[in-house]
Design a protein around this nucleic acid. Sequence first.
DNA 1: TCGCAGGTGGTCG
DNA 2: CGACCACCTGCG
Length: 276
Amino acid sequence: MIKISGLKDFNLEHIFDCGQCFRWNKQEDGSYVGIAMGKVVGMRYEDGALTIENAEEADFERIWKPYLDLDTDYGVIKKTLVEADENGVMAQAIKAGEGIRILRQELWETMVSFIISQNNNIPRIKGCIENLSQILGTYAGEFKGKDYYNIPTPEVLAKSTERDLLPVKLGYRSRYLIETARAVVSEGGLIKKDLAKYTGVGPKVASCIELFGRHNLAAFPIDVWVKRVMHKLYGFEEKDVKGMADFAVNKFGELGGVAQQYLFYYIRENDVDLTL
DNA sequence: TCGCAGGTGGTCG
DNA sequence: CGACCACCTGCG
């Protein structure tokens, strides 16, 4: 078990429920169990200390510190964002999700996850990713009586057919996933710079992959929730995606993606939420 | 029953 | 280009 204290700007609920990841689940006791970087662990944050269960001490520096982005000072980021937004809207949004951190997730997993996420809802996205991992992924381990599996590699997915993926219930997204996997394999396992070249990766998904899979904090994904919050807080027409994107670049610059996460969390919390 | 959910690809004008 | 529209699936 790992125990870390003295963390600032840290809240597991904010981190795991701000829309960046799909494999962490809140337990009855308030802790989170999930799989990341090939490891299955439980995380709990109380009395100012983070404990990571089922993890080796040596994995903290190597895996969990970078994964949780603990080297980044979010206090500085928040200060910068608040100062950039003179009308106080950002300060209000940050108050809601003050403990958000942008995880350093694996690129391929992020790509798969957000291709699946399109035109879909969170419970079903989570279910699809679990199904996919269980059917085609490698075994990652057992924790508290439950088995966990990794997201399948590009190679395995490239060799799969749409029929193989039927039980995953991806719908029309299965073709996107297979075609993207085949493209990645044909490129020698490397993922191209221009993400929008891949089937099933449009502007929104590409932006999510940039932000969550490449830790490109300037990326500002605009989804339905961001459209809502940009309308509500900044007065944009919901169809004015271009205007929102330009605004994000000018206002938040290199920190657009972090701003997006605070805004996203804020609107999800403040809107009547029937999806969770 | 039908619209909707972290959109995208294809087709028109 | 920009505005539609179909699309797997499952839930309210």
